[in-house]
């Protein structure tokens, strides 16, 4: 299973914000979820991959090719969904297809038409009459119809109702059943990534705070729910972040198996990706 995307020591300095030494790899046949709070660097990372902004350091290879030196060849095999619709308001969905068919060498018009019908976008309605969800569906239909090897989605499922989100996740899972395909997906909706992602990269303040296989992360991390006195007894090195409330305390445990050996009397619950995000931010705030 070779890597379709490799990001090594990526750095981008805006002065007030710095994407700092970000590295990860995306193997074929998998979905990588890029998570993080607003302004953590998810979109900056995606923009660097797509050369929408210039990086200050690091390397990015896509399909083994440099993303800058062989930009055209790389982009011909990438489908992109950005965080907002970028199609002109006066266009209709079929017109968007005609435009994109002249931009992508591997454009599949029949597939596009089938997506338009599936998503209810096939009419002559202009983009300006579309809801936010419909605009996003149009972008997703367009991205799939480029017959890409790599799909890059930046907050693509935001604004969609749960039923459509689930449909899209099913499409993504079907897409990666081919090991030559992969998906890089940034999202705030961590539950979607829990359903679909194989790997997680959590960016916090421009750096990779947590990364790894999703199942391993969810198996390794745990959530401790205990009283204040019990929390006081725990070695802080075992914890990532804590939330102290009026009726009890919660803490993110870095390695639940080590924790179980060290503190056998305390119960550690399974975590969600959202727990990992929230408690990491809390731990960092201390």
């Amino acid at each position: 299973m070779s890597n379709l995307l490799e990001v090594s020591h990526l750095t981008k300095d805006y002065g007030s914000f710095k994407l700092d030494d970000v590295s990860f790899a995306l193997p074929g046949g998998t979905i990588l979820g890029l998570i993080g709070e607003n302004g953590a660097g998810k979109s900056t990372t995606i923009k660097c991959i797509l050369n929408l902004i210039r990086r200050d350091g690091g390397d990015i290879t896509v399909f083994g090719l440099d993303n800058l030196k062989q930009e055209r060849a790389v982009k011909a095999r990438i489908g992109v969904v950005l965080d907002e619709s970028t199609f002109h308001d006066s266009l209709t969905a079929p017109q968007v297809g005609k435009i994109l068919s002249r931009l992508y060498p591997s454009w599949d018009g029949a597939l596009y038409q089938s997506y338009l019908e599936k998503f209810g976008l096939a009419g002559k309605k202009q983009v300006k009459a579309f809801s936010k969800g419909m605009k996003m569906k149009l972008s997703i239909a367009a991205a799939f119809s480029t017959r890409p090897q790599l799909l890059i989605l930046d907050e693509a499922t935001s604004g969609l109702d749960p039923v459509v989100r689930d449909e899209i996740l099913d499409e993504l899972l079907s897409f990666i059943s081919d090991e030559e395909h992969a998906v890089l997906m940034s999202s705030h909706i961590t539950s979607d990534l829990e359903k679909a992602a194989d790997y997680i990269v959590y960016l916090h303040k421009g750096r990779v705070a947590v990364s790894g296989a999703k199942d391993e992360l969810l198996d390794s991390y745990g959530k401790l729910v205990c009283s204040r006195s019990e929390l006081a007894e725990v070695d802080p090195a075992l914890l990532v972040g804590t939330r102290v409330g009026q009726f009890g305390c919660e803490a993110l445990v870095r390695d639940r198996h080590v924790f179980a050996r060290r503190c056998p009397g305390l119960t550690v619950d399974p975590v969600t990706l959202e727990d990992i995000m929230v408690f990491t931010v809390k731990g960092d705030a201390k």
Binding site: N51, R72, F87, D89, L103
Partner: peptide
Amino acid sequence: TADDISRWNRFAIATPVCR
């Protein structure tokens, strides 16, 4: 102006036509 309003160029640059 139309490109600016729709932020089309962000997408166009991500396609094989590039900058």
